[in-house]
Design a protein around this nucleic acid. Structure first.
Length: 414
DNA sequence: TCTGGGGTCCTAGGACCC
DNA sequence: TCTGGGGTCCTAGGACCC
C-alpha cells in the first residue's frame, strides 16, 4: 500500500510559512528571471493565473492584485528536507520523489489505521513547518497519486482509493500520472477520456500504439504495482546548469563569463554527489521569441581524456567550446553547461600519459569547505568575476529573505 | 519591455560485431 | 547466379515528470 504526500501549492506555501500575513492573499512565485508563474496560491488560481503562464501576459489589473515572489529554491529545499524528516519518523520507507512530493509505504500499518496515520502526518507537517499538505493512498503509486489529486478538493486532505473503479469513474485522463498532454489528446480521440476508460482499454493495443510506459500505467490503475518505493536516489546521469540571461548579451567576454559561472555551478553539484564527469557540453541560444531577430543556437560537446570534477578543467573546456561557437553579431539570451558520462570518483580509467594531479581533489575539497563554512560564493574562480557585475545577471526582483540559510536573514521576534 | 530549469525513460534506426 | 543469423551499442527524437 502506497501513500503520496504532497505540499499544497508548495512554493507559495513556503513563502507564506515565513510571512503568515500572506495567508488568504493571491501569491504567485515566478521562475528564474521573474518569467513565468510556477506556483500559485488558491486565491491566485481563482484570479485566472495559469501554471507556467508568462507573468507579463497576465492582465495588468490582475497583476496589481498579486503578491509576487521570485523563486527562492534555497528556502524551498530546506523546508522540503524538514518535511522528509517528519515522514521518515512516521513511515517505514520514504521515497523523495520531488521537492514537494514523497511516496511513503503503508506496510506494517493496519488498514483501519491508514487514514489516522495520514492525518497525523498532515498535522505534524503543518505544525512543524507551516506547510499544508494532502495525502493520497492506494494499492499502487499511480493510484496514490490520483488519490492525492482527489484529496486536494476535500477539507480533511486524505483520500484512500478503496474502490478505484468507482472513485475514478470521472477522473480525467490528463490528470493521471504518466499521461501528458499529447497522449491524453491522442487517447481522447480514440474515446478514452477517463481513468476507468484506460483501465478497460485493450492492453495489447495500448502497448503497440503508446509503448510499455502507458501499459504500465494501466496495470497500476488496475492495482498491479509496477514500481516500488525507491529509498536511495539513483546516481545522476547528467548534471545541467542553464539560465536565461537578464538581458541580451552580445560580447564574447560576457558570454564566456556566463558560461564560466554555469560550469562552476555544475561542478559544485557534481562534487556534492561525489561524481566525476567524462564529458562537457555547452550551448547558446538567441531569443526565440523575437522572430524578426537573427537566430543562432549552437551546441558543442567535448569528451575529457579522464573523468574530472575539477572546476578549472571543466571551465577551461567550456570556455574553449564557447569561443569556438561564438559568432559576432548575434544577441544571446540563454546558455547552458551540461556534464555528461557521470561516474563515481573511485572507479575510473586514468589517463595513460598524464598522471592524476593529487592536488586537484584537495583544492576542490578546500574550496567546497570554505564555501560551506562562509557561504556560497565566498571563494570562486577569478573567471566568474567581473568589474561592475555580470551583464547577463538573472532578474530576481522579488526575492524573499534566506530565512533558513543566512544568519542575517533569520526572523526576529520582538 | 517581459517568455524557466532540470531531469528520466523508451523506441527506432543505423553502425558495427562475430 | 547464389548472398545468414543473432547480437550490442549509440544516438536522436519524443514522450513524460516536477
Amino acid at each position: 500500500m502506497f501513500g503520496l504526500v504532497d505540499g499544497n501549492n508548495f512554493y507559495a506555501s513556503c513563502e507564506r510559512a515565513f510571512q503568515p500575513e500572506l495567508i488568504g492573499k493571491p501569491v504567485v512565485v515566478l521562475s528564474s528571471n521573474d518569467g513565468c508563474a510556477i506556483a500559485r496560491s488558491n486565491e491566485c488560481k481563482a484570479l485566472g493565473v495559469k501554471m507556467g503562464q508568462p507573468i507579463h501576459e497576465v492582465p495588468r489589473d490582475v497583476r496589481r492584485q498579486l503578491i509576487v515572489r521570485s523563486a527562492n529554491f534555497g528556502l524551498y529545499g530546506d523546508i522540503s528536507s524538514r518535511i522528509v524528516q517528519i515522514l521518515s519518523d512516521l513511515f517505514a520507507r520514504v521515497e523523495v520523489y520531488s521537492i514537494d512530493e514523497s511516496f511513503v509505504s503503508f506496510e506494517w500499518i493496519k488498514p483501519s489505521d491508514r487514514a489516522r496515520v495520514a492525518k497525523e502526518a498532515r498535522a505534524r507537517i503543518l505544525q512543524w513547518t507551516g506547510i499544508p499538505s494532502c495525502v493520497g493512498i492506494g494499492q499502487t503509486k499511480t493510484l496514490a497519486k490520483a488519490g492525492n489529486k482527489l484529496a486536494k478538493k476535500t477539507v480533511h486532505g486524505v483520500v484512500e482509493l478503496v474502490d478505484p473503479r468507482a472513485q475514478l469513474a470521472a477522473y480525467p485522463l490528463e490528470d493521471l500520472w504518466g499521461v501528458g498532454r499529447k497522449w491524453s489528446a491522442k487517447l481522447g480521440a480514440e474515446g478514452i477520456m477517463t481513468a476507468v476508460d484506460l483501465m478497460d482499454a485493450d492492453t495489447e493495443t495500448l502497448r503497440a500504439r503508446y509503448g510499455v510506459v502507458l501499459a504500465r500505467t494501466q496495470a497500476e490503475l488496475l492495482g498491479h504495482p509496477c514500481s516500488d518505493i525507491v529509498e536511495v536516489e539513483a546516481d545522476r546521469k547528467q548534471i545541467v546548469c542553464s539560465r536565461s540571461f537578464g538581458r541580451e548579451v552580445v560580447e564574447l567576454d560576457d558570454v564566456c563569463h556566463a558560461v564560466a559561472a554555469f560550469a562552476s555551478n555544475a561542478c559544485e553539484k557534481l562534487r556534492s554527489r561525489s561524481l566525476m564527469c567524462g564529458g562537457v557540453w555547452v550551448w547558446l541560444n538567441t531569443n526565440p521569441f523575437k522572430e524578426d531577430a537573427a537566430q543562432y543556437h549552437p551546441s558543442k560537446a567535448f569528451n575529457l581524456i579522464a573523468p574530472s570534477c575539477d572546476t578549472r578543467e571543466v571551465m577551461s573546456v567550456a570556455t574553449a567550446l564557447t569561443k569556438a561557437m561564438y559568432r559576432k553579431g548575434y544577441r544571446y539570451k540563454k546558455g547552458g553547461v551540461g556534464l555528461l558520462d557521470l561516474t563515481h570518483g573511485d572507479i575510473h580509467q586514468a589517463d595513460l600519459f598524464a598522471g592524476v594531479d593529487p592536488r586537484s581533489a584537495k583544492l576542490m575539497d578546500t574550496m567546497d569547505q570554505v564555501n560551506a563554512k562562509f557561504g556560497r560564493g565566498a571563494m570562486v574562480m577569478a573567471q566568474t568575476m567581473r568589474r561592475g557585475g555580470a551583464k547577463w545577471a538573472v532578474k530576481r526582483e522579488n526575492l524573499s529573505p534566506a530565512y533558513t540559510q543566512k544568519w542575517s536573514d533569520v526572523l526576529r521576534v520582538s
